[in-house]
Write a protein that binds this DNA or RNA. Structure first.
Length: 269
DNA sequence: ATAATAACCTGAGGGC
DNA sequence: TGCCCTCAGGTTATTA
């Protein structure tokens, strides 16, 4: 579910409720996530939350001592609700705060993760090797061109490779390539320099617009206040079984890297 | 090094 | 109604 816009939407939603608050108690209802939640997480009562940052699709909680590293996986979401609100199904983690509110993590498929580290979270083995942020200065046409030049892989798979650029998942890869006018199955090394530049612009623009709309809700995702993300209405090709909104041609669906992929055979080459 | 594939897990929806 | 199948926003580990 959550790609960069959904994770950033979550960050913006929870951060004002968490910053400066003390954790009173941690309730672990199910520790069986992607990796088991370590027992030390249940002993974080008393720590203060100094801030919530994002790197790629990870949320990084800075505590007064140590850091939490969260990943929402495919179906994870976070909400802030008053202490005492009944636990929903698949609500695996609850963090009770010192202001009567609680942060609740729900993740039906349990592909998410919650890790604690006493060290710099950016040096964690899962994070250290990641590529640049797509909305940052490092992600330029020059950079992407260098990583595409010798690759035979489909450009969509390159965009979804977190060691090249982070945050682009299955929805926004299809959407950005539609906006760039490039077919998702094109070999990365066959794309012209101007095409690469259009892709960089489109990735940035698509992600930025999705953040403005609070992300995309297909099924599970909710913002911290329970509302869905509204970018679903802006999607051009993802999940579109009908006509291209630009030219009217029928949208094609193919499978690339084990993932459903959509494109317009008229608008994209 | 790069590329392709299986694996992790639950729920929703379609066909019969 | 119920059973069986396929598919879903991510990522890692393993294999060619």
């Amino acid at each position: 579910m959550p790609e960069l816009p959904e994770v950033e939407t979550t960050r913006r939603g929870i951060e004002p409720h968490l910053r400066g608050r003390r954790i009173e108690r941690v309730i672990l209802r199910d520790t069986r996530l992607r990796w088991p939640i370590s027992p030390e997480v249940s002993e974080l009562g008393g720590r203060r939350i100094l801030g919530v940052a994002r790197r790629a699709k990870y949320l990084l909680w800075q505590l007064d001592r140590g850091h939490l590293i969260w990943h929402l996986g495919m179906s994870g979401s976070m909400r802030v609700l008053p202490i005492g609100a009944p636990a929903e199904n698949h609500e695996h983690v609850e963090m009770r705060l010192d202001n009567g509110q609680a942060l609740k993590f729900r993740d039906p498929r349990r592909f998410g993760a919650l890790l604690y580290t006493g060290d710099d979270p950016l040096q964690h083995r899962l994070i250290r090797t990641l590529g640049p942020e797509p909305l940052g200065d490092e992600f330029t046409a020059e950079y992407l061109h260098a990583h595409c030049r010798h690759r035979s892989a489909a450009i969509k798979n390159v965009l979804m490779n977190s060691h090249i650029v982070v945050g682009v998942g299955n929805i926004y890869a299809s959407e950005a390539l539609f906006q760039a006018g490039i077919r998702p199955g094109r070999a990365a090394r066959r794309i012209s320099r101007p095409g690469i530049a259009r892709i960089v612009d489109s990735v940035r623009d698509t992600l930025a617009r999705a953040i403005e709309h609070g992300g995309t809700t297909l099924q599970d995702f909710t913002q911290a206040d329970g509302k869905p993300g509204y970018f679903r209405h802006e999607l051009q090709v993802y999940g579109n079984r009908e006509a291209c909104r630009v030219c009217g041609h029928t949208i094609k669906q193919v499978v690339l890297g084990q993932r459903a992929t959509w494109y317009c055979p008229e608008c994209q080459s």
